[in-house]
């Protein structure tokens, strides 16, 4: 039972990180029907920016651990959001009217560009986060000792997701985003500035991705320039699992994927971990072809 709960909390923590990244995929997909293959690399940029900002200003001297993390998260989210918006303007907007696969190639080009830019700036080796920022405490949960950091990761992600959900459901901008996702042309006719909506989506998605990157850096302690691919693929899987284009779907998909992965590694085989994840995904898609929460829509190409 102890082992099970450890794996469960670990899976939920990793899964909540996947969910944060998956939200970026799913929001962009919802509005543009584009798989933003560069999104994983925006996440990696977040992780590296976090490291740079942390060491550059010596934040730890002025603020307590909580303050450092909050200031850092805000800076990283802001910067990555700007990168995301620039990416949209340069690589995706000119292709808005083209076939959707054309934009996919542009996205892959952007991904290669970002990945190599990170490698040129920071070098190909693993980078290590300072490990004295977050407390090392363990918390007793149902009689199980769980690291505090793990709970903080989970809690922060859930808070961000709830905030996003409320933003999308309750505000005017959120309503505009939902309208543009359902029918862009009708939204335009209703006076919604769709270009601005897309820009906002490309600010929010990368900001969440950047925050996830920072969390991975703080939680695991080391980062690498290729991590964007790996996490990006997992998060994309999570978005599909929940039903791409569906915001609660991305959250559910991410958490579920993290738990499946942790359980697969713990009880079946570590070497086959990723294969198990994909087999479960394929099995779910065979039964529910549009994901867990995806709507049945007739696809129009």
């Amino acid at each position: 039972m102890d082992f099970f709960l450890q794996q469960l909390t670990n899976g939920l923590a990793v899964g909540s990180i996947y969910a944060l990244i998956a939200l970026g995929y799913t929001m962009v997909y919802g509005v543009l029907k584009l798989i933003n293959f560069a999104h994983g690399d925006l996440f990696a940029i977040g992780a590296y920016l976090g490291l740079t900002l942390l060491t550059a200003f010596g934040l730890t001297r002025f603020l307590g651990p909580l303050g450092v993390v909050i200031v850092l998260a805000l800076m990283v989210m802001g910067l990555v959001a700007v990168v995301g918006a620039v990416l949209e303007r340069v690589a995706y907007r000119p292709l808005r009217q083209a076939h959707r696969l054309s934009a996919v190639v542009s996205a892959m080009g952007a991904s290669i560009f970002f990945q190599n830019a990170l490698m040129l700036i920071y070098g190909a080796r693993y980078k290590v986060y300072p490990h004295d920022i977050l407390p090392k405490n363990v918390v007793s949960l149902l009689g199980v000792e769980v690291p505090l950091v793990r709970l903080l990761v989970l809690l922060t992600s859930v808070l961000m997701m709830v905030a996003l959900y409320l933003f999308i459901q309750k505000t005017r901008i959120g309503t505009a985003i939902r309208a543009a996702a359902i029918d862009q042309r009708a939204a335009k006719l209703m006076g919604i500035n769709v270009d601005r909506v897309i820009m906002i989506v490309f600010l929010i998605g990368p900001a969440l991705g950047g925050a996830a990157g920072l969390m991975v850096g703080l939680y695991y302690g080391q980062i690498n320039f290729t991590m964007g691919w790996m996490y990006g693929l997992k998060a994309f899987t999570a978005a599909i699992l929940g039903g791409i284009g569906n915001i609660p779907g991305a959250m559910v998909g991410g958490l579920l994927l993290g738990v499946i992965e942790a359980m697969g590694a713990a009880y079946l085989s570590i070497a086959w971990k990723d294969a198990i994840t994909f087999i479960v995904l394929i099995a779910i898609l065979i039964v529910r072809p549009t994901g867990l929460l995806g709507e049945r829509v007739a696809e129009k190409v």
Binding site: A91, L95, S102, G109, A110, I112, L120
Partner: peptide
């Protein structure tokens, strides 16, 4: 040398923008 894939990625974006259907 090491910047070649960076240039390659940028060229891919440019090619898709100018020839959207390939």
């Amino acid at each position: 040398a090491s910047a070649r894939m960076l240039i390659f990625g940028a060229i891919m974006i440019a090619m898709m923008i100018f020839r959207t259907e390939g």
